[in-house]
């Protein structure tokens, strides 16, 4: 199974990056997880021509080619970071690679709640019709106290958290297989091009 992991932070040091690195290595026998950074993408600014800048296009191609996507989000002010939001805006505004793509949300935070509010926002955002990702329901993986969660060699040091993550990941592997099986005959092309009511309006209405 080929997955990509999106690091939801643009900071030099991020425990969410560490979490994905841990998953990449820990689940290497079950899936090949390619990590993608958002930190060098330009800030979204609604350009009139609607073309994706190179970095966004590269990310989009990787998402398209992958069987599923894992997003690891920090929590900034009870929501996702602007940098991650900006990447998502680009995708929704240009190539829309997330349509029907199986997505797993994970997150780490320095406090005890493990980015729960950011993850809830991210679900709602990815559920917007322009994105229409297939988010794995009910299972969530929240890593609190993330600053002390990783050993020097990158291992997650709480055994119960490792077990929880293994369960979530097993669930996600099934979810990816099932979703892709179910949707394999759907032609999503139409959706990638679809104009949403609000876009038609923006372009001067339907007349």
């Amino acid at each position: 199974m080929k997955l990509i992991g999106i690091v939801g932070s643009n900071a030099t040091n991020s425990t969410n990056r560490q979490l994905l690195q841990f998953m990449q290595q820990h689940f290497s026998d079950q899936a090949e997880i390619d990590l993608c950074e958002i930190k060098d993408l330009p800030a979204f600014n609604e350009p009139a021509d609607k073309t994706a800048p190179t970095g966004v296009q590269l990310l989009s191609d990787k998402i398209m080619a992958a069987d599923g996507v894992i997003v690891s989000t920090p929590e900034y002010d009870h929501s996702i970071p602007a940098a991650l939001k900006s990447a998502i805006e680009w995708l929704s505004y240009t190539t829309r690679p997330l349509i029907d793509k199986p997505v797993m949300i994970v997150g780490a935070s320095h406090g005890s709640l493990g980015s729960s509010r950011a993850q809830a926002h991210l679900r709602q955002i990815l559920d917007a019709p322009e994105l229409k990702a297939r988010i794995m329901p009910s299972d969530e993986f929240l890593l609190g106290h993330s600053l002390t969660a990783f050993a020097e060699d990158g291992q997650l040091i709480y055994p119960e958290k490792v077990q929880e993550l293994e369960e979530c990941f097993a669930e996600f592997v099934d979810f990816v297989t099932l979703t892709n099986e179910l949707l394999k005959n759907r032609h999503v092309n139409a959706e990638h091009q679809r104009q949403f009511s609000w876009e038609l309006d923006a372009n001067g209405g339907q007349n």
Partner: peptide
């Protein structure tokens, strides 16, 4: 409203201001 949430540009400002 961008993707059912606020714009990244506004979010970015609020992050600087926090």
């Amino acid at each position: 409203e961008h993707n059912h949430s606020i714009s990244s540009a506004l979010k970015s400002l609020l992050e600087w201001l926090s």
